[in-house]
């Protein structure tokens, strides 16, 4: 176990047990295990990386190497609303930069950052495949298209008022 005091004592590793029971002996399942772990915790805490490593017979370095290779995996907790802003070509041509700027003005966060109140995280992601509605963003699995700065402000205000 890690000795550097980086661990988060609130992590309940028991939640991971069913996932490890199901997959740890199935070869080639490391990514699937990490995806399931992220489903459970919202991100991949260091303790989980160590737990997965020991259950799958890998070194923590190997698990971390795989996890950091793929953009899907996060190592910090995310806000209640995860804003995934599409960085595809069509969105770029139709002004996604302006949308990123608007989010930055409204919430004061850039790519990868979370608001102090823990409500919003901004993540700039690869093409979401809704190119005809560009610029596009996805917030917690819901897709918002044909964005304008005005529309973005309204969406953010609406989400804020819900909380």
């Amino acid at each position: 176990m890690c000795k550097c005091n980086c661990s988060d004592s609130n992590i309940d590793l028991n939640l991971l047990k069913p996932v490890l029971d199901k997959y740890s002996n199935v070869k080639g399942s490391l990514i699937t295990i990490l995806q399931n772990a992220q489903e459970i915790y919202g991100y991949l805490p260091t303790e989980v990386i160590y737990e997965v490593a020991s259950a799958t017979g890998n070194t923590p370095a190997k698990v971390m190497g795989v996890a950091t290779f793929y953009t899907q995996f996060r190592f910090k907790p995310v806000g209640k609303y995860l804003i995934m802003l599409c960085q595809g070509t069509a969105c770029h041509v139709n002004g996604s930069e302006m949308i990123a700027q608007t989010i930055n003005e409204e919430l004061g966060i850039s790519d990868g950052e979370t608001t102090d109140d823990g409500l919003f995280t901004l993540s700039c992601v690869a093409c979401l495949g809704c190119c005809s509605l560009s610029p596009v963003m996805m917030i917690n699995d819901e897709t918002y298209g044909s964005l304008t700065p005005k529309k973005v402000r309204e969406i953010i205000a609406e989400l804020k008022s819900r909380s």
Binding site: G28, L30, I31, F69, Y70, T71, V125
Partner: peptide, 25 residues
């Protein structure tokens, strides 16, 4: 079905195979 985890290079067939096997693509 195997869900990818977000890496453009995995569209390359041998990288995709590496990813299917649970490694860096």
């Amino acid at each position: 079905i195997k869900a990818g985890a977000g890496a453009f290079v995995c569209g390359e067939e041998t990288a995709l195979i590496e990813s299917l096997e649970g490694s860096r693509g």
